[in-house]
Write a protein that binds this DNA or RNA. Structure first.
Lengths: 344, 344
DNA sequence: AATTATTGTACAATCGATTGTATTTTTTTT
DNA sequence: AAAAAAAATACAATCGATTGTACAATAATT
């Protein structure tokens, strides 16, 4: 079997005895080509199974109509949902997306950025890695003149457009809700507060304490962990064994909340009678465990959509000077479930 | 701010007063360039922040070092895990991936294939949409001479390499396990049996009945639904209301199993005392509900890795004639949990 | 019918990297 | 030191599509 080479506009031009530029214009519906010729060309293109070579086109036009996405983990529901949102908007506008995972590693993130820039993406939507401590690789990329926007997570020191949620506000709401249940002491499981989202959520908790006039010294304990089931499980176990007193757990994501709930139940605590448990992000699983867990719904798909819209806008805006970097904040929503409702 | 054009090998060549072909060879470590010149060029390239233009390179070399992936939904844990596996192997081999979602629509799937072919990916890994009834778009793509391999799901009528799991065998195992618990009647919630995976799982159940010498007429009922929480919930409710007799549910994915379990519990049935419940795929959530649900673990990451390896092998093999299409079957694993263990 | 305006096509350069061939420079051999 | 061999570099075509400019064909105007 010979190696079938793919059909080019030159092949079509040769067959029709016309110039390839005319073929190109005909296929792109350019007014300089007569309707008659267009029809002939388009028919022949279909007949010959012509498929435009995006590489060649992109090279010539200096744009790839592609948006790069970098997320920590595509297996996380929040991110895969956000990606879906980005994809949807991107496709609507005729853009493709390339998805990369940083696995929360700064190295990989830098590599991903490089790959995307080499692929000449028109823009990058980035939700930075937890471990991102230096911002060199991002700064350098921004010098290359292709826009990099943040979504969900962001880096304070980098000034660019971001699409985020009002974590701080909703975190405060959740904390107020817990306090309103009359708890003695709140235990918080947080992620690295160098990460914007965790920082904001913690600040929200302090806001709630301040507003309630409560003393964080005596009524709040906090521990930083890797926010997954196992580490949360372990952290709670240690607290219980050390007889640390608390009667509510606020974990900064749902997986940690589930791990905490499991650990507490194994130790014989009843949720919510003995201890309240709350999470964050509204993973589908949160409402399926027993009891269903109070959490915060973040509009992942909307974040993705908006971020995509914004960067596409930016790409297509010829006069870049009028585009300042802005911060779009989407509302998140407190979802109260059984796990934090004290029975009367 | 002027529009910074990116640095090309020609820019480097001009600065160094040498030919761009030498620059190209120096950067690619070609033996035709002296070590001294290589050093000079590479240093200068770094200094000038040179970044190769992948588009140009790909156009010239007629390969993109990119693999396209099409899955029904990236938000499904199984698929995002498989994608992670593919990515890992691909990156190891110097390939990038482009990920597309078909949303289980044949139209979108065809569009995705077209996009990928236009982007000149070197190969496509496809897990076909449920709704894929015609195979034209796949056949046509295969004519274009770029390999399309299946993973997880496949289409019988299309002969190409596939990487799948031994669903039928493990489904049979699971069914045997249920039968061994001494059940009266098994209720099966299946997806569209036109889809390979569901077809195989159903066949596995029949295998188990045959092996046990049991009559499927009297001891098995089956219903085809969209395998999600809500439809499963509804299906179970209807059965219960109609007083259909069964004391075990085998749902062909975990979400449906969870929906079924919820519905049964709401109707007052105890799991597993009154009814056994089993799912499929070992979603993380399956072990977190109460009671934890018996399921089948499918090695998603391994499937992805193997599929990636196979297609990269195929791409890099110059003598395509020796490559026949093959079927790799990976073992899946029965995971028995509380939901199907009758208390003695 | 001659001139101008308009429309449709063809020509040729270009995007940036790669690569076969030709040429120059250096090294080795006699 | 001249000839041959080897190494390093330069030249030029190419990948496929796009696009500004030039030219030809037709239509409109006088």
């Amino acid at each position: 079997m010979e190696n079938k080479k793919s059909v080019t506009i030159h092949d079509i031009a040769r067959v029709l005895q016309i110039d390839s530029s005319t073929v190109s214009r005909a296929l792109n519906n350019n007014p300089r080509v007569s309707a008659k010729t267009k029809k002939i060309v388009q028919d022949k293109a279909k007949e010959m199974h012509y498929r435009p070579n995006t590489l060649a086109s992109n090279l010539r036009t200096q744009k790839s109509n592609t948006i790069g996405i970098i997320v920590p983990h595509i297996t996380k529901y929040f991110f895969s949902t956000a990606i879906s949102g980005i994809e949807e908007e991107a496709h609507k506008a005729g853009y493709n997306v390339i998805i990369c995972q940083s696995k929360d590693s700064e190295d990989l993130e830098a590599k991903n950025i490089n790959t995307l820039l080499s692929s000449r993406v028109d823009g990058i939507l980035l939700s930075p890695a937890i471990k991102t401590s230096t911002i060199d690789h991002i700064q350098k990329a921004m010098e290359s003149n292709i826009p990099i926007f943040f979504f969900d997570r962001y880096i304070k020191e980098v000034s660019t457009t971001k699409v985020i949620t009002d974590d701080r506000i909703t975190s405060k709401e959740l904390a107020l809700h817990l306090l309103s249940q009359g708890i003695r002491k709140l235990a918080v499981l947080t992620g690295d507060t160098k990460v914007s989202i965790y920082d904001n959520r913690v600040k929200g908790i302090y806001d709630a304490f301040k507003e309630s006039g409560l003393n964080t010294e005596s009524k709040l304990i906090m521990q930083q962990i890797k926010l997954d089931i196992d580490e949360a499980h372990e952290a709670i176990n240690k607290w219980v064994e050390k007889k640390v007193d608390f009667d509510a757990v606020f974990a900064m994501n749902d997986m940690a909340a589930i791990g905490a709930q499991k650990a507490l139940q194994e130790k014989g605590f009843k949720i919510p009678e003995d201890v309240l448990v709350a999470g964050f992000s509204n993973e589908p699983i949160a409402k399926l465990v027993s009891p269903p867990i109070t959490t915060v719904h973040q509009p992942a798909a909307e974040i993705g959509k908006l971020a995509a819209k914004k960067i596409i806008n930016h790409i297509q805006e010829s006069d870049k000077s009028i585009l300042a970097s802005e911060t779009a904040v989407l509302d998140s929503e407190l979802i109260i479930r059984e796990s934090t409702l004290r029975k009367k």
